[in-house]
């Protein structure tokens, strides 16, 4: 097991390096370097452009060096000091802007993951066991619909319905009186009262996909000889289902975290923009609209790294669950 974990962690390193390089290249992509943007912004505000200040910035980002030198300045700043550069829009260090937002993104993504499992696994299992029943068709239909409706559209419709018929906004994660309040029991309860709406919206597509996977996996297992044997031995249907096929059908469920997590984070961003949640989404959009590339790049880097780490954790869980993966060649 230790060997497996070490090997997986080592595999992760080139991926992380590649992510950082891609992010850096994207930061560099807009025409003109960081200083041109700064100067343009200062001039637009009508303030005086200080030469020594510019030189300091040029020195700070290594802008006189070749591209790989700039990359090195950037990445070593992040690794040693947690310095992601400076955001133009917020006029603050990128790291502090990100810090405020990332917690809610992680919270929202993990709750959605839990929601997807909690809903999709029972429904998928029911669909497989009661194949071609009314319930199965209903689940399949809802599943297709969940995949076809863009989650931001779902959010918009909900926004409209709640505003029109219930006279309240579903946006945000807190009631107005709690937004700036310190953390206390009331605030946590208020958060719980709000968080389920975005969780459902973000989770629909994932749930729909997961139902199909669970159903297909379990259907493959249900016709295996060992199931027939267990049934012939007189094992009650429910225990039989839980004891054998479900466990084998469960391993692909864990392994799908690898694609579920990136898609949940994507969904979280766009839904947060619609519902104006205090997560990374809206800030990232603002950053991109004003080409505040260090901020946008910082978000991209951290979101990608988090996804890779999440996938790593799921792989380790999977190996705990299924010895074939631990010892076999991947």
């Amino acid at each position: 097991m230790t060997q497996f974990i070490v090997r997986r962690v080592l595999y992760m390193i080139p991926t992380l390096i590649a992510i950082s390089i891609v992010t850096f290249l994207i930061i560099q992509a807009p025409p003109g370097d960081y200083l041109t943007t700064v100067v343009a912004k200062l001039e637009a505000e009508g303030s005086y452009v200080d030469r020594s200040q510019l030189d300091a910035l040029r020195d700070r980002y290594g802008l006189d060096e070749p591209l790989w030198g700039q990359y090195w300045t950037w990445i070593s700043g992040i690794l040693t000091e947690g310095d992601f550069g400076r955001s133009l829009v917020y006029d603050a260090p990128v790291s502090s802007v990100i810090q405020d937002r990332m917690g809610f993104t992680i919270l929202l993504s993990l709750s959605t993951l839990a929601f997807v499992w909690a809903v999709a696994i029972p429904i998928g299992m029911y669909s497989a066991v009661k194949r071609y029943s009314v319930g199965d068709y209903a689940a399949t239909f809802v599943g297709f619909l969940g995949l076809a409706i863009p989650n931001f559209l779902f959010a918009l419709v909900l926004l409209y319905v709640s505003h029109r018929y219930f006279g309240q906004s579903v946006g945000g994660l807190f009631s107005p009186e709690y937004v700036d309040a310190r953390w206390n029991l009331g605030k946590i309860l208020d958060l719980l009262a709000h968080v389920w709406i975005p969780v459902i919206i973000i989770g629909t597509a994932g749930t729909a996909g997961m139902i199909r996977i669970v159903r297909a996996n379990l259907l493959d297992e249900l016709n295996r000889p060992y199931v027939t044997t267990a049934r012939a031995k007189g094992l009650p249907e429910r225990r039989l289902l839980m004891k054998y096929p479900s466990r084998i059908a469960a391993s692909p469920i864990v392994s799908t975290v690898g694609w579920l997590l990136p898609s949940l984070i994507s969904a979280e961003i766009i839904v947060s923009v619609v519902l104006s949640l205090p997560t990374t989404g809206p800030v990232m959009l603002t950053a991109l609209e004003s080409q505040d590339m260090y901020l946008a790049g910082g978000f991209l880097l951290i979101l990608s790294v988090l996804t890779v780490v999440g996938t790593l954790i799921s792989d380790i869980l999977l190996a705990r669950l299924d010895p074939r993966i631990r010892y076999g060649k991947r």
């Binding site: 991926t15 992509a29 898609s263 984070i265 946008a296 790049g297």
Partner: peptide
């Protein structure tokens, strides 16, 4: 392994 939407957004904005 990269979340697609942030990547697309960043590329499109660039």
């Amino acid at each position: 392994s990269i979340p697609t939407l942030p990547l697309w957004m960043t590329l499109a904005a660039a």
